[in-house]
Nucleic acid binder design. Structure first.
Lengths: 144, 144
DNA sequence: GTAATTCCTAGAAACTCAATATGAATTGCA
DNA sequence: TGCAATTCATATTGAGTTTCTAGGAATTAC
């Protein structure tokens, strides 16, 4: 039950854009160098974020990317779900059901729903702005 | 970030053994029929549970499996970790660290630790006995 | 001794992951 | 106007994982 590199890199990418934001567009090459991630792989990842309107791209020399909104407008859940797909641990735990004949009286489904809620409780309440604060060193005593 | 069928089947297998326990050993063939899971696949899964001492096997005719302990002695976390491997969402969030050069001031690591705690908070507090109760229909108003 | 069961190992088809490769499109600037 | 820097789009690939299936060996109640 691992978060893939795609989701993790997307998060670091967005956090990098937030951290090094200065009005000027930020080149992917610089993100790749700072985060030690392949630039080509980052291209694929940011393409998803771009199509979703999470970042704005400027082409050509002096081009790059900027965040579309402020860091507190992006939850970790938004970014992970976009790049990673659903975060629900079991398919039958999302939506209203109808996927499984065993659904009535299915004890494990109740379990998966609880697990889903616990995961959402974290990812939907932490924002890029929180990550920036934690980065500054105050992370250990932050409580959700 | 999905739980694989192996972990889910292991849980249903253990729950089935708990539910249909009667002193007599329970044949895998019956579990397979009730749970609609391939018997051959179940063999592989129960082999892990057997080696870990979670179930006891009786060979030969009238053979089968029985739970080694009572249902409240098995947490969902024990069963999933055994069959699924670690449940930690990102490798660097388990143990004491030393895996990553970026570790100091790594905001995302703090996030992954929080997510890990949230997941453990569910799986380490729900037992097979809880699942049995939920199966009986009282699931919806159960609160951890 | 036979049939019912568990036990063991190998293999295979499909899928996912984590990139890499190649080149086209766009555009600021000399 | 043309060059170079950047984003954009698509295809491919190698490794690994998942989810089984296959075949048979070992054990044992009757």
């Amino acid at each position: 039950m691992r978060i893939s590199t795609k989701g993790r890199y997307a998060l670091r990418l967005m956090l990098d854009l937030a951290t090094y934001s200065s009005g000027e567009p930020i080149r992917l090459k610089d993100v790749a160098r700072r985060q030690e991630i392949s630039e080509k792989y980052l291209e694929q990842i940011i393409s998803v974020l771009n199509k979703a309107g999470y970042v704005r791209s400027i082409r050509g020399p002096q081009g790059g990317y900027v965040l579309q909104k402020t860091p507190q407008d992006y939850t970790v859940g938004m970014i992970l779900r976009l790049t990673e797909g659903s975060l629900t641990p079991v398919e039958c735990a999302e939506g209203e059901g109808g996927l499984c004949s065993r659904e009535e009286n299915c004890a494990t489904r109740i379990l998966w729903k609880k697990l889903d809620e616990a995961i959402n409780g974290v990812v939907d309440h932490v924002t890029l702005a929180d990550l920036m604060e934690w980065q500054a060193g105050a992370g250990d005593d932050y409580v959700i």
